[in-house]
Simulated scan of single mutants.
Amino acid sequence: MNDKQSLPGVQDVMTRDVISITSDLTVRQAKELMRDKGISGMPVVDRENALLGVISVADIIQAMENNNLNAFISEVMTVNPVFLHEQDTVGHALNACRRYGFGRFPVINEQSKVVGILTTSDIVTRLAQLLRIDQVDEPEEKKEPKDFTTQTYECSIQSMNFDLAGVAASNIKKMLTELGLEGTIIRRAAIAAYDAEMNVVIHAHEGKLSAKVTPHDITIIVEDSGPGIEDVSLAMQPGYSTASDRIREMGFGAGMGLPNIKKSADELAIESSPKGTTLVIKIFID
């Protein structure tokens, strides 16, 4: 990001509407609440809303197998859960995602009270809003695109470097705007570039993004090193997560964002192995 002062912290991007439960209720009551709210896990708090633990679908399933749904939540919850402080930086949050393999954390304040939930989706969405990735200022009168020869852009992408996340997509958006391209084309290219860029920042070791713009099309190539996508066809499904079964049951883990890229692109080619992944995104201009 060009304006470092606009970098959000955890308290700026977290979800504040937290569904939680107290430890003196039963596992059966937790099961019903999770079903009603459509969630797969939630913080366990005391009467003062201080964090005590976390209960997940995995805990519910284990209790069902043990015929123990009438047990108190305090008996089955995960104690000493990993959490974030609302004053933490988003960079710290992303590092926690990478370190623990989670994509969701309870957020507490200085009094240890739960004030939010943070997911990688919250971070990606909020950053896109700050960068105005999907917003294009349309001219009052439609103008013909400028005559131009092939334009190129290239930059490196650093894993977990939130300070630079979104810079490549922003620069591509700026370049296309200066070329006078249609707003819908600019928006699609910026969104595709942003999602691909964030995939590298959050999931890969390092990467590179290059773009080539001709009067006929836009080609964006994103290459990264490791860990690769185990099943590309699954990753293309909305809501798919690369996390383990256990982590997904707990409501953690983040998908690769490939469905968003596919939606924005006219053509999308993906090659992936344990050594890395290459995306070739093409958007037609005429």
Results as ranks from 00 to 15, higher is better:
41 G>D: 02
193 A>M: 01
76 V>L: 10
92 H>C: 09
10 V>L: 00
1 M>Y: 01
176 L>D: 04
99 R>C: 07
18 V>N: 10
259 P>N: 01
72 F>T: 12
74 S>T: 09
139 P>I: 14
136 V>F: 12
266 D>K: 01
149 T>R: 12
14 M>T: 01
140 E>T: 11
160 M>G: 04
49 N>S: 13
144 E>F: 07
172 I>E: 01
273 S>C: 02
244 S>M: 10
157 I>G: 03
152 T>R: 13
81 P>R: 00
135 Q>P: 09
204 A>Y: 06
208 K>V: 14
170 S>T: 09
218 I>D: 09
12 D>S: 03
285 I>G: 06
185 I>H: 11
270 I>P: 10
79 V>D: 02
271 E>G: 11
93 A>M: 02
267 E>T: 12
188 R>G: 07
212 K>I: 14
44 V>A: 12
222 V>N: 15
269 A>P: 05
138 E>N: 12
74 S>G: 04
21 I>E: 09
150 T>I: 14
38 G>S: 10
104 R>M: 01
209 L>Y: 08
254 A>W: 00
174 K>R: 13
286 D>P: 15
266 D>F: 06
51 L>P: 01
259 P>D: 01
6 S>T: 13
155 C>V: 07
52 L>F: 07
263 K>Q: 03
231 D>Q: 07
236 M>W: 05
213 V>G: 07
141 E>K: 13
201 V>R: 02
118 L>F: 00
116 G>D: 06
145 P>E: 05
161 N>M: 04
100 Y>G: 10
236 M>P: 03
33 L>R: 13
286 D>G: 14
186 I>L: 04
213 V>F: 08
2 N>C: 05
37 K>Y: 14
20 S>C: 14
148 F>E: 07
255 G>R: 04
178 E>P: 06
132 R>D: 15
115 V>Q: 11
180 G>Q: 04
93 A>P: 00
146 K>V: 09
272 S>T: 15
29 Q>I: 05
136 V>L: 05
234 L>C: 07
98 R>D: 12
135 Q>C: 11
15 T>P: 00
276 G>E: 00
231 D>F: 03
220 I>D: 07
149 T>D: 13
154 E>G: 10
239 G>H: 01
138 E>I: 15
59 D>Q: 00
280 V>W: 08
67 N>F: 05
156 S>N: 12
1 M>C: 01
191 I>A: 06
147 D>G: 08
216 H>Q: 15
108 I>E: 08
13 V>I: 06
172 I>C: 02
242 T>F: 05
170 S>R: 01
119 T>S: 02
2 N>H: 09
221 I>M: 11
226 G>S: 15
40 S>M: 11
271 E>N: 14
98 R>T: 11
4 K>F: 11
22 T>W: 08
81 P>T: 02
45 V>Y: 03
44 V>M: 06
37 K>G: 10
281 I>Y: 08
48 E>A: 14
138 E>F: 13
249 E>G: 00
184 T>K: 13
235 A>G: 05
178 E>G: 05
82 V>C: 09
198 M>Q: 07
10 V>G: 00
45 V>S: 03
176 L>C: 12
52 L>T: 06
222 V>D: 11
96 A>Q: 15
26 T>Q: 02
